[in-house]
Amino acid sequence: MGKIVYFWWTIGFVLLALETLVPGATLLWFGLAALGVGLVVLVIPGLSIIGQVVLFGIFSAVTLAIYWKFFRATHHESDQPLLNRRGEQMIGRVFVVEEAIEHGQGKVRVGDTVWSVLGEDCAVGSRVRVLDVLDNKLKVEPAQ
């Protein structure tokens, strides 16, 4: 075996080892491509350096395509779709006005937090229902 085979295998194994330090699965596919070029050079020892580099590019593209097609995480429906979407969790709930809603703006108390609200004018103590969330403000309407 020629030195060039060892070169490609060394590059491949170094990339595979570095994969343990890098988040995601990026270097893995380049490492596999380098190992593949090493195997081709083992079978075809007269392959030029340019040919090897082109082959590495092709193998890298193929391995990345395989990753994107079969291994990349796809969007899965969550069993808690509103997790970390605090404002949206409040849609439909009724709260008491903490600071009067005047000129379309006021505040309501939600647990131990005060939220800004947008809606029809309401006095302190009125009950309002959350309709939507707009820019971290709750859009409300008077509740019955």
Rank of each mutant, 00 (worst) to 15 (best):
L64Q: 05
H76N: 11
G51C: 04
L39R: 03
Q52Y: 01
G12E: 02
P45L: 07
E120N: 14
R93Q: 12
I4K: 04
H103I: 08
V37G: 01
R127W: 08
E19A: 09
T10R: 01
H103G: 15
W68N: 07
V43K: 13
L18G: 12
L35A: 12
E141D: 12
Q144H: 10
Q52N: 05
L39N: 05
P45I: 06
M90Q: 11
V114Q: 13
L47G: 02
V128A: 04
A34F: 00
M1I: 08
L21N: 09
E19H: 08
V96M: 10
Y67A: 04
V117I: 14
L131C: 11
R93G: 03
V130A: 03
V133Q: 05
D112A: 12
W29L: 05
L118N: 07
V37W: 00
F59G: 02
G111S: 04
E120K: 15
F7N: 02
R85I: 02
Q52P: 00
Q52C: 03
L138Q: 00
K139T: 10
L82E: 06
L47N: 01
G51S: 09
I91V: 11
G104V: 10
V108M: 10
N136F: 07
I66D: 06
I49Q: 08
F95M: 04
E99N: 14
S48T: 14
K139L: 13
A100L: 11
F13Y: 07
V114T: 15
V96N: 10
Y67N: 06
L42V: 04
